[in-house]
């Protein structure tokens, strides 16, 4: 097991390198100049040139790339071109907010979506099934920013139950949680719909599977069939799904974070893209890629655990 993890981690190195290199090139292909973004439209060409020189943007692509990779090898993610503070410091300060939001959304999605999906599959083509499917479809159709604004309209502006914007300090857990509720529901709603639908679909598949049929034919009690056979088989695709959702959520939090004025990795990335803060974009993408590598390793490990048929060569 340990060797397997180690192997996956080693395999992740070329992945990370590729991500870093692609991003390094892509951000520089996009027309736009970090100096212009920082200095504004009033700045003269002379000022822009001076700024580019100071930030090393006039170096050849190769020199910039070499410096960047050498920095990474030393564990240095580089300094933001805008604030000129270490990129990692900013990521460190926003990451907990993103993790908190994603975790809350996944919890909501799993707690509501899994049972709904299972029930829906078992009571297929009944009113319960139809209602579940229609409601989850509505959740799927509304863009996150729209749900967020509607929630904010009713529960913050009209009813005043929750604050409209901001994330709250971790030192004040009550305030922090109050500010987490609306964004977590916003993000969780879309994911709940996905989880419900996929769980239902996977369960239907499994219920039709030969060995479940056999178990039923053998006269096993329905609840036992579900527990011992169906649910266990359904776990494989569901685990895979949760893996993808985790990744998707951490990125998908962009709009939710923006609407609710929350700091976070996603909104920081959009901000950096707007400012052409190359170093910041690169640093965030490295962190993203790392998170994804870790989540994928976890998913594969859980695979092996729930489905012994899967053997890693």
């Amino acid at each position: 097991m340990f060797r397997h993890i180690l192997r996956r981690l080693l395999l992740a190195i070329p992945t990370l390198w590729a991500v870093v290199t692609i991003i390094f090139l892509v951000v520089r292909v996009v027309p736009g100049d970090p100096a212009r973004a920082v200095l504004g439209d009033y700045a003269s060409e002379e000022t822009i040139a001076a700024y580019r020189e100071q930030m090393g943007l006039n170096d050849s692509l190769w020199v910039q790339y070499k410096n960047y990779i050498l920095g990474l090898l030393r564990g240095d993610l580089g300094d933001s071109l805008v604030s000129r503070t270490p990129a990692w410091d900013q990521i460190k300060s926003v990451l907990p907010h993103t993790l908190e939001l994603s975790l809350a959304a996944i919890l909501i999605a799993l707690c509501i979506g899994l049972p709904l999906g299972v029930i829906s599959a078992m009571k297929r083509n009944t009113m319960i099934d139809y209602t579940t499917r229609i409601v989850s479809l509505i959740g799927l159709s509304a863009p996150a920013f729209y749900i967020g604004l509607l929630l904010m309209y009713f529960f913050a502006a009209k009813l005043g139950w929750f604050p409209a914007i901001g994330a709250g300090d971790f030192s004040d857990p009550v305030d922090n949680l109050r500010r987490l509720v609306l964004p977590a529901i916003t993000l969780g709603m879309v994911e709940t719909a996905s989880v419900t639908r996929m769980t239902r679909s996977v369960m239907l598949n499994v219920l039709n599977d030969d060995y479940v049929r056999t178990a039923r034919a053998k006269g096993l009690v329905e609840s036992r069939v579900m527990r011992d056979h169906a649910l266990r088989s359904a776990m494989v695709p569901i685990v895979s799904l949760v893996g993808i959702f985790t990744i998707g959520l951490i990125g998908g939090s962009v709009l939710t974070e923006q609407v609710f004025g929350r700091p976070g990795l996603g909104s920081r990335l959009v901000g950096a893209t707007r400012q052409f803060d190359y170093n910041m974009i690169q640093a965030i993408m490295v962190v993203y890629a790392l998170i994804i590598v870790i989540v994928n390793i976890l998913v594969d490990l859980i695979y092996t655990w729930v489905d012994p048929r899967v053997r890693h060569s």
Binding site: T15, G251, G266, A289, I292, N296
Partner: peptide, 16 residues
């Protein structure tokens, strides 16, 4: 690995 690389770009960011 290629899939992992592509996945490491969130939807919106790939689009962007």
């Amino acid at each position: 690995r290629i899939v992992d690389i592509m996945l490491s770009f969130p939807d919106l960011i790939t689009g962007l």
